[in-house]
Design a protein around this nucleic acid. Structure first.
Lengths: 330, 330
DNA sequence: ATGAAAGCGCTAACAG
DNA sequence: CTGTTAGCGCTTTCAT
């Protein structure tokens, strides 16, 4: 049995309240008592029971993090940033993954929303369409969405410059002479994916380039679909001179497939992604992309949540800047 | 204020214990009461307070995970596996990262070892030499080490076939005609890294190849050191026809550096890594490596810990098989 | 400067 | 089948 505050009190023949006060540097305890308490606490290897503290204080000093997939490059980086900020502010982080599923997201949220955490960071799963569970959650607990967010109701969000990034990237492709730009899109119901798509479309129309439906292929985030999509385009003889994929993983797959088909990058087809994942600098040719700054997004989201937990009850919509990173693939 | 069991009891004019029993499907409650309780619970949006439950039951249904770096490919995959098993068994996971530091590891452990978790999964930081905090921890709580383990005292561990994998890989390099094999080592005080080094050495000596100290370079996990090490070897005119790096990130860096130096892979120098990270299949030439199975290791570690939490107090040393994956770089 | 008492929300032994 | 009581470990009034 671990040592409790009572054990210390008994040994010193003082009351538990005195021990508690001494341990927590509360005013009104004599120096002598304080040091005696600390002595015994050390000797008995006392560790405060944080569960009891949480119950008493209505505050767990934990934050929940719910993401589709922990091992995804973007999320693991973001979680790293979240953890760093959390630790600095005295919070632990509780992590769940949803594999993009609705039921799993609901379950993860319910498991956390039970006094276990003081707030939740959430990135919405790709298959989630009905957002009522998120709205309900945000009425009970501080919630900050990051990356996979919604603007359908008022809730704090941290996003990248998805629209602007995609616009800038597409513009750059156009300026470098590309006219038939394929877009390999992610799941359209995710707002950030739609934003990237709109950035692409608007850049085209601003530069008087007709948008062709055949050049836009929805591949979810599935690299197999990317492979197939690229092959289909080539087999069907659709002309294209660039590919802009909704994320780097998809772009890398496009590069691998094009290479297998003997198509030269960037001579015949330029390829660009979104994210600036580690692979983008390793694949050959190195990938032009948008720097997504996952770590920074995670940190900002964590800071925002912690601020809200500590009683700032205003929602905030924040954007992390995203720069164009030009490499060999374009 | 969230609904409590008392609120439900009051509305139904029954006692809190009855409500508790009804909610938890304990025997001896009439169907009628059970359904009435569930009705009201739903109506009042009741959520059990898991902090109170934990306090009462001396059991948090949480497990702690401490790793050097969450965003590291190996660890993020492992954590994904851990989370999956944990969720299936009704556990939440609390994650900390240590950035390989001693103080941070001690702090992370202390923060978790306070009734917050029922057990801990730990991967030892690279700078940690004195293991007393781990030994102490394992006397208070079930602990399972994974990957970065110690065999200095009796504690449960899950590792890959580090020695065997390195041995097999080196043997394969020798069989394919390589004689002067450089080893880019990680931090030697990590047992798994030492095991890989021993596998390399023993394969050489079994095949009557002299081991040369100059061919073994300790690079920690630092890709910059790898870059420098490879350049130094070349500048100094040291002859070598293969490089075996202690992990894939290092091997990838070796490939990039060799390429910059105009050295052909695998014609002039073969390169092999350890880990089978995602990049190993994307870098060009594709990397020969050892499949480390991080996800599987995480899952196995989690299963082992959960078993120990549920009263199996025997330690177990487990190995996850590691196969040689031959690709273009050798 | 310290103690006594109450209570956070829940469960479980005991009693009926 | 249900209620009463006690208590998990801690903090926090309210006394003294």
């Amino acid at each position: 049995m671990p040592t409790t505050i009572k054990d210390i009190a008994r040994q010193l023949r003082v009351s538990p309240s005195t021990v508690s006060r001494a341990l927590n540097n509360k005013p009104g305890i004599s120096k002598k008592t304080v040091s005696a308490v600390n002595m015994i606490a050390q000797k008995l290897n006392y560790k405060p029971n944080s569960v009891a503290v949480s119950l008493r204080q209505h505050r767990s000093n934990c934050i929940g993090v719910v993401v589709p997939k922990i091992s995804n490059h973007f999320f693991s980086e973001a979680i790293g940033g979240i953890q760093e900020i959390a630790a600095k502010s005295g919070y632990q982080i509780l992590i769940s993954q949803t594999r993009d599923g609705v039921e799993e997201e609901v379950n993860a949220i319910n498991a956390l929303n039970s006094g276990r955490v003081d707030g939740i960071l959430l990135s919405i799963g790709a298959e989630v369409k009905n957002l009522s569970h998120i709205k309900a959650l945000s009425n009970e607990l501080p919630v900050v969405l990051f990356d996979r967010v919604t603007t359908k109701f008022d809730i704090s969000c941290v996003v990248a410059e998805d629209y602007d990034g995609a616009y800038r990237l597409t513009k750059y492709l156009i300026k470098s002479g590309r006219k038939r730009i394929v877009h390999l899109a992610g799941p359209r119901n995710l707002e950030i994916i739609d934003a990237r798509y709109r950035g692409y479309r608007n850049a085209l129309s601003k530069h008087k380039i007709a948008t062709r439906n055949r050049l836009v292929v929805e591949c979810d985030f599935d690299v197999q679909k990317v492979d197939q999509a690229v092959r289909d385009l080539v087999v069907e003889g659709i002309e294209f001179d660039a590919i802009f994929a909704s994320n780097d993983d998809m772009a890398v797959q496009a590069i691998l497939t094009l290479e297998q088909l003997g198509i030269k990058i960037p001579e015949n087809v330029a390829v660009a992604g979104f994210g600036n994942y580690a692979v983008s600098n390793i694949v050959k040719p190195k990938l032009t992309t948008i720097n997504h700054q996952p770590r920074k997004m995670g940190m900002l989201a964590a800071k925002t949540l912690i601020k809200e937990i500590n009683c700032d009850r205003n929602t905030s919509q924040l954007k992390v800047s995203s720069e164009l990173v030009i490499r060999e693939s374009t």
